[in-house]
Every structure is written in structure tokens, then in C-alpha cells.
Design a protein around this nucleic acid. Structure first.
Lengths: 142, 142
DNA sequence: ATTTAAATTAGAATAATTCTAATCTAGTAA
DNA sequence: TTACTAGATTAGAATTATTCTAATTTAAAT
């Protein structure tokens, strides 16, 4: 976190209170928040904060590789502040997202005819499941 | 395709010319079209067709498992009329999407602590790459 | 204290998707 | 064939996430 702030300054970016609040909120956060989640949280301390600031900051953090967009929910983008490559599992009932820290890269070999057409640069797995809470809810209904 | 039309009727859905046109357009289509792509195509023959019809039909086909939404591009949803489970590779430069018919399911074992929290129901891999066309473009620039 | 490039802001603009309510029609049955 | 009706279509409005804009403010360097 401190390192991040340092990196921030080194690269000539200004460290504003709003950005600091966003950085703090994201630091170690595993809730995979949306821009709106972040906005609402920051608004508590900085009532005049705007979406533009949230999106700007997220965009910058993405460029720096500190935050990744999660492509798993079509409605809204989710953001993941863990820069370590990993995968995700999403509850198909409540959309809760979990992290999957497992390296499958050895197994994910592409067929040759694909590698002729695309130079691979990465991969990401979306697992789908039903979380505990929703399993219980479903049982209750039956 | 014929089977699909039969299935359609059997289940009490009406087969309208617009829907038939959409079905024909999707049949065997590997271009992973967006709703807008489909709309523009159908509009050629049915100039009064509306987005509502396109989205309605896609929704119905999804429920029947004949079409799947591809969660790989945040801007727009893409649709895949191939009901056989498979994965995708997307060009990070031009967004072109390719199909990856390879069964990785054996390798995609989830860590135990995840399986305690989620009952898995499926998975989908997004591969990222640079397509031939874009590789050439990039070289040209250098 | 001054300067200035960058950041913030409110609100408008954009764009994908969903909704609505009026109209129409495929398929059925008389 | 005709009439019926549940379901489909339509134009356009509404919604929602995200991006843009232009005026104002500010962090950080001088």
C-alpha cells in the first residue's frame, strides 16, 4: 500500500485525498467492487466526489497493472485490486464473486490451429457455482 | 436447424418470419454477433424489425440452451449459437473472437476451500491473444 | 507565495439493453 | 374460411453503466 503511494508519486501523478481514499478502500479488498460500490463508499468521506474521479482512478490503476477488470458480470464491471494473476468463481444466483488462486496455465494449451491464428497472451477462467448461502435458500424453497 | 424449428413449435412458441430470419442468421454462424449485428442483418429483409424482437428471441433461445451469451467483451454482449460447450479466444486489439473446442474440464479442479464455499456448475475460459491481422498491423508500425 | 499541469466536479452525452403499451398475427379450432 | 386469442411485434421511451466536457480547484514544485 505504502509502496503503491510511492509508485504513484514517482510517476508524476498527484496523490489527492479522493485517490488516497480509493486506494485505501481497494487495498486488500476481496469484494470485487463495482465502480458504484467504490463511489458510494468514498462518498461517505468525500460527499462531493464524482464518478469521473472513480473511473479516472480505476483507469489509471489498470494501466499500472494494480487493478484488473473482471469480465464475469455483464451488468457492471467489477474491479479486482489483487495484481497476482488468478481466476474467479461467481454464484449464478446472487453474483457473489470468489477468487481462485490456482495456476492452471500448464493445462491450458491451445490447439495448434488456434495458435496459428492467434498469438496467445493470457487467459482467465470463469467458474460458475452456487454459493453456500444460495444453496440454503434453494433448499428452503423445496 | 429444422430440428430447432420443430422444437420451437412443439413448445408452443410462434414461428414468425422475423424469428425465422434470426434463426437462419444464427444457424452455423461463428462470428459471435452482438444484438446490433443481428438487428442490422435482419433489418435488411424486415426493415421494421425492432431491437425488442432481437432481444426477445435471443432471450428465448438462451433459455432453451440454443444460444449462449459470451462474457468476454464488456462493451456489448456477444452471442454464440453453438450449444456445444466450448471456450473462446479474443484478440485484445480488434476484439475478434474465435472458438476453442478443447475439453479442459479434467484439469480445472477447484481447490477444496472453494468447493466448500461454492457448488461448482460449470466453467468457461477466456483466452486472450493477438490475431494474425493485428500482428501484421503492429509489425508494420515498427 | 506563485505557478501550472493535472485532478476534480456537476452534469451532459453516449450507448447498450430493457420496458411499455398499442397493434398485429400465427396457429388453432369452429 | 373465419374468428379467436395468446403470444409476438413495434416504435419509442426508460433505464443504467460508463464516458465526456468544460469550468474550477489543487498538489506539488519553484
Amino acid at each position: 500500500m505504502k509502496e503503491l503511494i510511492e509508485k504513484y508519486k514517482e510517476r508524476g501523478f498527484k496523490l489527492t485525498p479522493q485517490r488516497l481514499a480509493i486506494l485505501k478502500f481497494l487495498d486488500g479488498n476481496t469484494s470485487h467492487p463495482t465502480a458504484d460500490d467504490i463511489y458510494r463508499q468514498i462518498k461517505k468521506d468525500y460527499p462531493t466526489v464524482s464518478f469521473a474521479t472513480v473511473y479516472n482512478t480505476l483507469q489509471m490503476l489498470q494501466k499500472k497493472g494494480e487493478v484488473a477488470e473482471i469480465t464475469i458480470d455483464h451488468q457492471k464491471k467489477h474491479y479486482d485490486p489483487n495484481p497476482k494473476p488468478h481466476h474467479h468463481i461467481i454464484c449464478i444466483s446472487c453474483n457473489k464473486i470468489g477468487d481462485v488462486f490456482e495456476d492452471y496455465s500448464e493445462a491450458l494449451r491451445l490447439p495448434y490451429h488456434i495458435e496459428e491464428e492467434f498469438k496467445p497472451v493470457g487467459s482467465h477462467i470463469n467458474f460458475y457455482g452456487i454459493c453456500r448461502g444460495c444453496q440454503k435458500k434453494h433448499k428452503r424453497r423445496n
